[in-house]
Amino acid sequence: MKIEEIMTSTFATVRSNLTIQEAARKMRDRNIDCLVVVEGGEPIGIVTDRDLCCRAVADRIDPSRATVRDFMTAKVAFCFGDQDIVDGAHLMEKQHIRRLAVLDRENRMLGLVSVDDIARCSYFLAGQILERSAVTAH
């Protein structure tokens, strides 16, 4: 099965200078757990609800002043939509991440694929990703 068959093709973007308070509101209002950070139409990072909660709140950062750039993951891990889900799962496992940007072969963003998307097709692959991330979290 191909990544493009299971990915989420709707995603929300933000600019890196948006405050994390505004980013959190956007996530809440759209009922999503991450935002793709773009500059000049190109993805430069991803910020998740976990980034905001566990990093910003835990460190008592003022959410009305801190920006997405301060909390995003700058290196965007990606796969291609025409790749097999096993390839995507192995990349997530290797990089200890739970989501990947999905690009076409012209490097245009098509969507996101998460461990949840993979779980809908293969509990085994999703379990491997989660097991690997749990081992490295300690």
Rank of each mutant, 00 (worst) to 15 (best):
N107P: 00
K75Q: 00
G40L: 01
I32A: 00
A12M: 09
A137W: 06
G45V: 07
D70V: 05
V86M: 10
A134V: 13
I129A: 11
I97F: 14
E39P: 01
N31W: 02
A119S: 14
T67F: 04
I32E: 01
L91W: 06
A12D: 09
L125R: 08
S64T: 15
R69L: 09
G127Q: 08
Q128G: 08
T136V: 13
I20H: 02
V76N: 04
H90Y: 07
D51Q: 04
I97Y: 13
M7C: 08
F71L: 14
G111K: 00
L103S: 05
V47E: 00
K26F: 07
H90D: 06
A56I: 01
I61S: 06
V38L: 14
A12I: 15
I32T: 02
A12L: 12
G40N: 04
D104P: 07
S122F: 11
I85G: 03
R60Q: 10
D116L: 13
A77F: 10
G45F: 06
R30V: 04
G41A: 11
V102M: 08
D49H: 07
Q95E: 10
K26T: 14
T136H: 05
E5A: 13
I85K: 04
L35M: 09
F78P: 00
D116E: 13
M92S: 15
L103T: 03
V37C: 03
